[in-house]
Simulated scan of single mutants.
Amino acid sequence: MQMVNNQKRTRNRPSWKQLLLGGIVGGGVGIAGAIAGVALYIVETLIKPKTLTNFIEQYTFSPYELNLPAEEVTFPPLYGEHTVSGWFVPCPGATSTIILCPGYRGRRSDVLGTCVNLWKAGHNILAFEYYGHGAVVGKPITLGYREINDFLGAVAYAKQRAPQTRLGAVGYSMGAAIVIMAAARTPEIEAVVADSPFATHKSPIEYAVHRTLHLPFILFEWMTDVMLWWRAGYRFNQVEPLRDIGRISPRPIMIIHGLKDSIVDPRDAPLLYKAAGNPKELWLLPEADHCGAYFEDRVVYVEKLTAFFDQHLKQAHPPISLQERKDDTGPQKSHESYTEAG
Protein backbone atom coordinates (compact mmCIF):
# COMPACT_ATOMS: atom_id res chain seq x y z
CA MET A 1 0.00 0.00 0.00
CA GLN A 2 2.81 2.44 0.86
CA MET A 3 4.52 1.69 -2.47
CA VAL A 4 1.28 2.50 -4.35
CA ASN A 5 0.91 5.84 -2.53
CA ASN A 6 4.53 6.75 -3.32
CA GLN A 7 3.92 5.97 -6.99
CA LYS A 8 0.79 8.17 -6.99
CA ARG A 9 2.70 11.06 -5.38
CA THR A 10 5.47 10.65 -7.96
CA ARG A 11 2.99 10.76 -10.83
CA ASN A 12 1.21 13.91 -9.44
CA ARG A 13 4.41 15.85 -8.76
CA PRO A 14 5.14 18.30 -11.66
CA SER A 15 8.44 17.88 -13.44
CA TRP A 16 11.03 20.65 -13.62
CA LYS A 17 10.06 21.22 -17.27
CA GLN A 18 6.43 21.77 -16.30
CA LEU A 19 7.44 24.17 -13.54
CA LEU A 20 9.68 26.13 -15.92
CA LEU A 21 6.99 26.31 -18.61
CA GLY A 22 4.38 27.39 -16.07
CA GLY A 23 6.70 30.07 -14.75
CA ILE A 24 7.40 31.37 -18.24
CA VAL A 25 3.70 31.45 -19.15
CA GLY A 26 2.72 33.06 -15.86
CA GLY A 27 5.54 35.56 -16.09
CA GLY A 28 4.67 36.31 -19.71
CA VAL A 29 1.06 36.97 -18.82
CA GLY A 30 2.19 39.25 -16.01
CA ILE A 31 4.55 41.20 -18.28
CA ALA A 32 1.91 41.50 -21.00
CA GLY A 33 -0.57 42.74 -18.43
CA ALA A 34 1.89 45.34 -17.17
CA ILE A 35 2.60 46.54 -20.72
CA ALA A 36 -1.12 46.76 -21.48
CA GLY A 37 -1.67 48.67 -18.25
CA VAL A 38 1.02 51.22 -19.06
CA ALA A 39 -0.27 51.58 -22.62
CA LEU A 40 -3.83 52.16 -21.43
CA TYR A 41 -2.64 54.70 -18.87
CA ILE A 42 -0.74 56.62 -21.58
CA VAL A 43 -3.78 56.78 -23.86
CA GLU A 44 -6.28 57.62 -21.11
CA THR A 45 -4.01 60.42 -19.88
CA LEU A 46 -3.67 61.73 -23.44
CA ILE A 47 -7.39 61.89 -24.25
CA LYS A 48 -8.72 62.73 -20.78
CA PRO A 49 -11.12 65.73 -20.81
CA LYS A 50 -9.71 68.89 -19.30
CA THR A 51 -10.60 69.85 -15.72
CA LEU A 52 -9.96 73.08 -13.81
CA THR A 53 -7.30 72.69 -11.15
CA ASN A 54 -7.04 76.22 -9.75
CA PHE A 55 -8.44 79.72 -10.13
CA ILE A 56 -5.50 80.81 -12.32
CA GLU A 57 -6.87 78.68 -15.15
CA GLN A 58 -10.24 80.39 -14.83
CA TYR A 59 -9.07 84.00 -14.57
CA THR A 60 -6.37 85.05 -17.00
CA PHE A 61 -5.37 87.88 -19.32
CA SER A 62 -7.61 88.94 -22.17
CA PRO A 63 -7.28 91.43 -25.07
CA TYR A 64 -8.84 94.06 -22.78
CA GLU A 65 -5.71 94.31 -20.63
CA LEU A 66 -3.62 94.91 -23.76
CA ASN A 67 -5.98 97.44 -25.38
CA LEU A 68 -6.60 95.16 -28.32
CA PRO A 69 -9.88 95.87 -30.19
CA ALA A 70 -10.71 92.17 -30.25
CA GLU A 71 -14.08 90.63 -31.03
CA GLU A 72 -15.26 87.42 -29.39
CA VAL A 73 -16.01 85.04 -32.26
CA THR A 74 -17.09 81.47 -32.76
CA PHE A 75 -16.94 79.38 -35.91
CA PRO A 76 -17.55 75.77 -36.89
CA PRO A 77 -14.74 73.30 -37.54
CA LEU A 78 -14.38 71.87 -41.01
CA TYR A 79 -16.02 68.71 -39.68
CA GLY A 80 -17.77 68.34 -36.34
CA GLU A 81 -20.83 69.49 -34.41
CA HIS A 82 -19.06 71.76 -31.90
CA THR A 83 -18.07 75.42 -32.22
CA VAL A 84 -14.57 76.86 -31.83
CA SER A 85 -13.94 79.99 -29.73
CA GLY A 86 -11.55 82.74 -30.70
CA TRP A 87 -10.72 86.43 -30.95
CA PHE A 88 -10.67 88.36 -34.20
CA VAL A 89 -8.65 91.58 -34.11
CA PRO A 90 -9.10 93.72 -37.23
CA CYS A 91 -6.30 96.06 -38.29
CA PRO A 92 -7.35 98.96 -40.54
CA GLY A 93 -5.85 98.64 -44.01
CA ALA A 94 -4.37 95.19 -43.37
CA THR A 95 -3.53 93.08 -46.41
CA SER A 96 -2.80 89.97 -44.35
CA THR A 97 -4.41 87.91 -41.59
CA ILE A 98 -2.39 85.80 -39.16
CA ILE A 99 -4.01 82.79 -37.49
CA LEU A 100 -2.52 81.90 -34.10
CA CYS A 101 -3.18 78.77 -32.05
CA PRO A 102 -1.80 77.38 -28.78
CA GLY A 103 -0.91 73.78 -28.13
CA TYR A 104 -2.17 70.77 -26.23
CA ARG A 105 -4.53 71.89 -23.43
CA GLY A 106 -3.52 75.48 -24.21
CA ARG A 107 -5.68 78.61 -24.13
CA ARG A 108 -5.91 81.41 -26.66
CA SER A 109 -4.66 83.78 -23.95
CA ASP A 110 -1.33 81.91 -24.13
CA VAL A 111 -0.58 83.58 -27.49
CA LEU A 112 -1.65 87.13 -26.60
CA GLY A 113 1.92 88.44 -26.50
CA THR A 114 2.53 87.42 -30.09
CA CYS A 115 -0.96 88.56 -31.11
CA VAL A 116 -0.56 92.15 -29.96
CA ASN A 117 2.82 92.58 -31.62
CA LEU A 118 1.75 91.12 -34.96
CA TRP A 119 -1.37 93.30 -34.84
CA LYS A 120 0.80 96.38 -34.24
CA ALA A 121 2.87 95.28 -37.26
CA GLY A 122 -0.21 95.68 -39.46
CA HIS A 123 -1.90 92.25 -39.60
CA ASN A 124 -5.43 91.17 -38.82
CA ILE A 125 -5.33 88.54 -36.06
CA LEU A 126 -7.44 85.44 -35.52
CA ALA A 127 -6.46 83.64 -32.31
CA PHE A 128 -8.37 80.56 -31.18
CA GLU A 129 -8.09 77.55 -28.90
CA TYR A 130 -8.78 73.96 -29.83
CA TYR A 131 -12.11 72.57 -28.69
CA GLY A 132 -11.78 70.90 -25.28
CA HIS A 133 -8.19 72.09 -24.77
CA GLY A 134 -8.67 75.65 -23.52
CA ALA A 135 -12.11 75.74 -21.91
CA VAL A 136 -13.51 72.83 -19.97
CA VAL A 137 -16.09 71.02 -22.10
CA GLY A 138 -15.89 67.51 -20.67
CA LYS A 139 -15.14 65.83 -23.99
CA PRO A 140 -12.16 63.57 -24.80
CA ILE A 141 -9.43 65.21 -26.85
CA THR A 142 -6.77 63.95 -29.23
CA LEU A 143 -3.25 65.03 -30.16
CA GLY A 144 -4.06 66.68 -33.47
CA TYR A 145 -6.17 63.98 -35.10
CA ARG A 146 -9.54 65.73 -34.69
CA GLU A 147 -8.20 69.17 -33.82
CA ILE A 148 -6.96 69.74 -37.37
CA ASN A 149 -10.60 70.34 -38.30
CA ASP A 150 -10.70 73.29 -35.88
CA PHE A 151 -7.74 74.87 -37.64
CA LEU A 152 -9.21 74.32 -41.09
CA GLY A 153 -12.41 75.90 -39.77
CA ALA A 154 -10.33 78.90 -38.67
CA VAL A 155 -8.93 79.19 -42.20
CA ALA A 156 -12.46 79.27 -43.64
CA TYR A 157 -13.55 81.86 -41.06
CA ALA A 158 -10.53 84.09 -41.75
CA LYS A 159 -11.23 84.06 -45.48
CA GLN A 160 -14.86 84.90 -44.79
CA ARG A 161 -14.00 87.83 -42.50
CA ALA A 162 -11.19 89.27 -44.62
CA PRO A 163 -11.47 87.67 -48.08
CA GLN A 164 -8.93 89.95 -49.77
CA THR A 165 -6.11 89.30 -47.29
CA ARG A 166 -3.33 86.73 -47.48
CA LEU A 167 -3.13 84.20 -44.66
CA GLY A 168 -0.22 83.28 -42.43
CA ALA A 169 -0.19 81.00 -39.40
CA VAL A 170 1.68 80.66 -36.11
CA GLY A 171 1.28 77.48 -34.08
CA TYR A 172 2.77 76.27 -30.82
CA SER A 173 3.54 72.66 -29.83
CA MET A 174 0.58 70.51 -30.94
CA GLY A 175 -0.75 73.64 -32.62
CA ALA A 176 2.48 73.89 -34.60
CA ALA A 177 2.20 70.27 -35.70
CA ILE A 178 -1.40 70.91 -36.78
CA VAL A 179 -0.43 74.05 -38.71
CA ILE A 180 2.08 71.97 -40.68
CA MET A 181 -0.45 69.24 -41.46
CA ALA A 182 -3.19 71.76 -42.29
CA ALA A 183 -0.98 73.90 -44.54
CA ALA A 184 -0.17 70.76 -46.49
CA ARG A 185 -3.91 70.33 -47.06
CA THR A 186 -4.98 73.87 -47.99
CA PRO A 187 -3.21 76.39 -50.23
CA GLU A 188 -4.85 79.30 -48.37
CA ILE A 189 -2.03 79.37 -45.79
CA GLU A 190 0.86 81.14 -47.52
CA ALA A 191 3.43 81.36 -44.70
CA VAL A 192 3.94 79.14 -41.63
CA VAL A 193 5.71 79.59 -38.29
CA ALA A 194 5.88 76.35 -36.27
CA ASP A 195 7.16 76.81 -32.71
CA SER A 196 8.15 73.55 -30.97
CA PRO A 197 6.29 71.09 -33.24
CA PHE A 198 6.61 67.33 -32.92
CA ALA A 199 7.56 65.32 -36.00
CA THR A 200 5.23 62.38 -35.35
CA HIS A 201 2.45 61.58 -32.90
CA LYS A 202 4.60 58.86 -31.39
CA SER A 203 7.56 61.16 -30.76
CA PRO A 204 6.35 63.18 -27.70
CA ILE A 205 4.90 60.03 -26.11
CA GLU A 206 8.18 58.18 -26.60
CA TYR A 207 10.05 61.19 -25.20
CA ALA A 208 7.80 61.32 -22.11
CA VAL A 209 8.09 57.58 -21.42
CA HIS A 210 11.86 57.74 -21.70
CA ARG A 211 12.09 60.76 -19.38
CA THR A 212 9.63 59.47 -16.74
CA LEU A 213 9.90 55.67 -16.76
CA HIS A 214 13.49 55.49 -18.06
CA LEU A 215 12.44 52.61 -20.30
CA PRO A 216 12.56 52.23 -24.08
CA PHE A 217 9.18 53.02 -25.61
CA ILE A 218 9.51 50.09 -28.00
CA LEU A 219 8.29 47.93 -25.08
CA PHE A 220 4.94 49.74 -25.14
CA GLU A 221 4.71 51.05 -28.71
CA TRP A 222 2.54 48.37 -30.32
CA MET A 223 0.15 48.07 -27.39
CA THR A 224 -0.18 51.87 -27.04
CA ASP A 225 -1.02 52.11 -30.74
CA VAL A 226 -3.70 49.45 -30.28
CA MET A 227 -5.11 51.20 -27.21
CA LEU A 228 -5.14 54.51 -29.09
CA TRP A 229 -7.20 52.91 -31.84
CA TRP A 230 -9.54 51.31 -29.30
CA ARG A 231 -10.07 54.37 -27.11
CA ALA A 232 -9.70 57.28 -29.58
CA GLY A 233 -10.30 55.78 -33.03
CA TYR A 234 -6.98 56.50 -34.72
CA ARG A 235 -3.39 55.28 -34.95
CA PHE A 236 0.00 56.91 -34.51
CA ASN A 237 0.71 57.11 -38.24
CA GLN A 238 -2.42 59.18 -38.88
CA VAL A 239 -0.85 62.23 -37.23
CA GLU A 240 2.54 62.76 -38.83
CA PRO A 241 3.74 66.29 -39.67
CA LEU A 242 7.04 64.82 -40.88
CA ARG A 243 5.20 63.14 -43.74
CA ASP A 244 3.23 66.29 -44.64
CA ILE A 245 5.75 69.11 -44.31
CA GLY A 246 7.28 68.61 -47.75
CA ARG A 247 3.94 69.48 -49.34
CA ILE A 248 4.02 73.05 -48.02
CA SER A 249 6.71 74.20 -50.45
CA PRO A 250 6.98 76.58 -52.30
CA ARG A 251 5.34 78.42 -49.41
CA PRO A 252 7.83 79.41 -46.68
CA ILE A 253 8.09 77.84 -43.23
CA MET A 254 10.05 78.82 -40.12
CA ILE A 255 10.67 76.15 -37.47
CA ILE A 256 11.55 77.29 -33.94
CA HIS A 257 12.71 74.97 -31.16
CA GLY A 258 14.43 75.16 -27.81
CA LEU A 259 17.24 72.64 -27.30
CA LYS A 260 16.25 72.17 -23.64
CA ASP A 261 12.69 71.23 -24.52
CA SER A 262 11.27 68.90 -21.86
CA ILE A 263 8.03 68.09 -23.73
CA VAL A 264 8.93 67.60 -27.41
CA ASP A 265 12.23 66.04 -28.40
CA PRO A 266 14.49 68.81 -29.81
CA ARG A 267 15.75 66.32 -32.38
CA ASP A 268 12.37 66.57 -34.11
CA ALA A 269 13.15 70.08 -35.38
CA PRO A 270 16.10 69.10 -37.64
CA LEU A 271 14.06 66.15 -38.93
CA LEU A 272 11.22 68.46 -39.94
CA TYR A 273 13.61 71.02 -41.40
CA LYS A 274 15.31 68.40 -43.55
CA ALA A 275 11.98 67.10 -44.84
CA ALA A 276 10.65 70.59 -45.65
CA GLY A 277 11.06 72.14 -49.07
CA ASN A 278 12.41 75.62 -49.74
CA PRO A 279 12.10 78.34 -48.64
CA LYS A 280 12.64 77.33 -45.02
CA GLU A 281 14.28 78.56 -41.82
CA LEU A 282 15.37 76.77 -38.65
CA TRP A 283 15.89 78.73 -35.43
CA LEU A 284 17.29 76.70 -32.52
CA LEU A 285 17.72 78.24 -29.07
CA PRO A 286 20.27 76.44 -26.85
CA GLU A 287 18.74 77.46 -23.49
CA ALA A 288 15.00 77.50 -24.27
CA ASP A 289 12.49 74.99 -22.92
CA HIS A 290 9.23 74.02 -24.60
CA CYS A 291 7.72 77.00 -26.47
CA GLY A 292 10.19 79.15 -24.57
CA ALA A 293 11.75 81.12 -27.44
CA TYR A 294 9.43 84.08 -26.88
CA PHE A 295 10.44 84.28 -23.22
CA GLU A 296 14.16 83.97 -23.97
CA ASP A 297 14.12 87.30 -25.83
CA ARG A 298 10.74 88.81 -26.60
CA VAL A 299 12.16 91.60 -28.78
CA VAL A 300 14.17 89.27 -31.02
CA TYR A 301 11.29 86.79 -31.23
CA VAL A 302 8.79 89.43 -32.34
CA GLU A 303 11.28 90.96 -34.78
CA LYS A 304 11.90 87.57 -36.40
CA LEU A 305 8.21 86.81 -36.85
CA THR A 306 7.44 90.33 -38.07
CA ALA A 307 10.25 90.23 -40.63
CA PHE A 308 9.18 86.76 -41.78
CA PHE A 309 5.58 87.77 -42.47
CA ASP A 310 6.61 91.14 -43.93
CA GLN A 311 8.84 89.38 -46.42
CA HIS A 312 6.52 86.55 -47.38
CA LEU A 313 3.06 88.11 -47.08
CA LYS A 314 3.39 91.88 -47.48
CA GLN A 315 6.28 92.19 -49.92
CA ALA A 316 6.41 88.92 -51.88
CA HIS A 317 4.15 87.89 -54.71
CA PRO A 318 1.83 84.96 -53.89
CA PRO A 319 3.53 81.60 -54.40
CA ILE A 320 2.59 79.52 -57.40
CA SER A 321 -0.60 77.54 -57.04
CA LEU A 322 -0.20 74.11 -55.51
CA GLN A 323 -2.21 72.76 -58.41
CA GLU A 324 0.48 74.04 -60.78
CA ARG A 325 3.39 72.73 -58.73
CA LYS A 326 5.50 69.93 -60.15
CA ASP A 327 7.48 67.43 -58.15
CA ASP A 328 9.67 64.44 -58.90
CA THR A 329 6.70 62.22 -59.61
CA GLY A 330 4.94 64.57 -62.00
CA PRO A 331 1.91 66.82 -61.49
CA GLN A 332 0.73 67.43 -57.93
CA LYS A 333 -2.03 65.00 -57.11
CA SER A 334 -5.19 66.05 -55.34
CA HIS A 335 -5.04 65.74 -51.57
CA GLU A 336 -7.04 63.29 -49.50
CA SER A 337 -10.21 64.16 -47.61
CA TYR A 338 -9.89 66.71 -44.81
CA THR A 339 -12.05 64.65 -42.47
CA GLU A 340 -9.17 63.91 -40.11
CA ALA A 341 -5.43 64.46 -39.95
CA GLY A 342 -4.81 61.18 -41.70
Rank of each mutant, 00 (worst) to 15 (best):
T212N: 15
T142C: 01
C91V: 10
P252G: 05
Q323E: 13
P204I: 03
L242P: 02
E287K: 12
K159I: 00
V89H: 08
E281D: 13
N278H: 09
F198P: 02
F217N: 13
D261E: 00
G93Q: 04
Y172F: 15
G292Q: 07
H123V: 04
F55I: 15
L52A: 11
H317C: 00
A232I: 06
R166S: 06
Q160M: 07
V226C: 04
P266M: 04
M174A: 03
T142Q: 01
L100R: 01
R108T: 04
Y338R: 07
S173W: 04
P204C: 03
V137H: 13
A208V: 11
G144V: 05
H317P: 07
S249N: 00
A275D: 05
A199Y: 09
S196I: 00
S321G: 08
H210C: 10
D265N: 15
D225F: 05
N278M: 09
P187E: 13
L78A: 08
V136P: 09
G233M: 02
G171M: 11
M3E: 15
D195N: 12
K139P: 02
P286G: 03
H123F: 10
K159F: 00
F220Q: 09
H123L: 08
S337W: 08
A34V: 13
K333M: 09
E65L: 13
G103D: 01
F198Q: 00
V300D: 14
V136T: 11
S96R: 12
I178V: 14
I178W: 04
K120T: 12
R13H: 11
P331V: 03
A269D: 08
K50S: 07
E44H: 10
G342S: 10
Y145R: 06
I256A: 04
C101V: 11
R185Y: 02
G292R: 02
A276Y: 02
G138H: 02
E190I: 07
G277E: 08
S203K: 00
V300R: 14
E303A: 08
A276E: 00
W87R: 09
F236W: 15
G144T: 04
P319Q: 00
D268Y: 03
G113W: 05
P250D: 01
N67H: 15
P266F: 03
P252F: 04
N54F: 09
M1Y: 11
G37A: 10
